[in-house]
Write a protein that binds this DNA or RNA. Structure first.
Lengths: 125, 125
DNA sequence: ATTGAATGATTACAGGTGTAATACTTTGTC
DNA sequence: GACAAAGTATTACACCTGTAATCATTCAAT
């Protein structure tokens, strides 16, 4: 299931809190998105059609909630990206990101910790 | 400049070796892509229009070469991905990739080496 | 019962993408 | 000089996406 960039903004709102009405989604969207209500409705409908979200009727309004879990979305996007840009090799990816010059010392320390945890896991199977 | 997934296959061939004729590009494309010649021509033309590639005439044929560098493509795709999926935080990204269960012991060792190099760079700043 | 506000459903429309087919141009060969 | 082959350019077409506007329904108030 493909979620477009625009649709992802709706998912973010619902992953953060659900269920929510359309009105509430509109209010909780990132303020930098100056979308018309109608645009948001369209995106909600597309997500329904894709079964990325569902709804239940509460009186006259619909309460929307995610069907696609954020962790699944992240996994699948990551996999696609890794395959497409880095030939599927995690080491290529890390090498590229490590070169970014905006990594703080703390970032590096965090990464090191992560890797060490990984090492331990592998040792202990 | 946006390079679509299909177009990326052409770029891969040219990044690997250039300049090349259209015919040569067709032959060097990943075998799993069973594209008609005409499809490849279309993609080449779209890339020309986007100025992702250029050409020089050699007699009757065109020799194509990349204008967009692979490293720039990787940087920009990585940046987009990081922003879209991981709210721009490298640590989120690494945490997600570290969870993949297909990382080999060697992958982990490579990562560790990378991170240590990073640490040294930061220290010597 | 009628009207209006709120909400959801349907339709719109241009640009990008995947995947080609058809048209045009150049040149080597008879 | 006409024709075939090879190469490039133009056109095609359906689906997705970004971004909305219009249509339809329903509940609430008069």
């Amino acid at each position: 299931m493909q979620i477009s960039d625009s649709e992802k903004n709706i998912m973010d709102v619902l992953w953060n809190e659900s269920p929510q009405t359309a009105k509430s989604i509109i209010n909780n969207l990132d303020k930098s998105l100056e979308w018309q209500d109608k645009t948001v409705k369209t995106l909600i409908n597309r997500l329904l059609k894709k079964q990325a979200i569902g709804y239940e009727k509460e009186g006259r309004v619909y309460l929307y909630f995610p069907l696609l879990e954020e962790s699944d979305y992240i996994s699948s996007e990551s996999e696609n990206f890794l395959t497409k840009v880095f030939k599927g090799k995690v080491s290529n990816l890390v090498a590229a990101f490590a070169k970014r010059d905006d990594l703080s010392a703390k970032d590096v320390a965090d990464l090191k910790t992560l890797i060490e945890e990984l090492e331990n896991e592998k040792e202990q199977g």
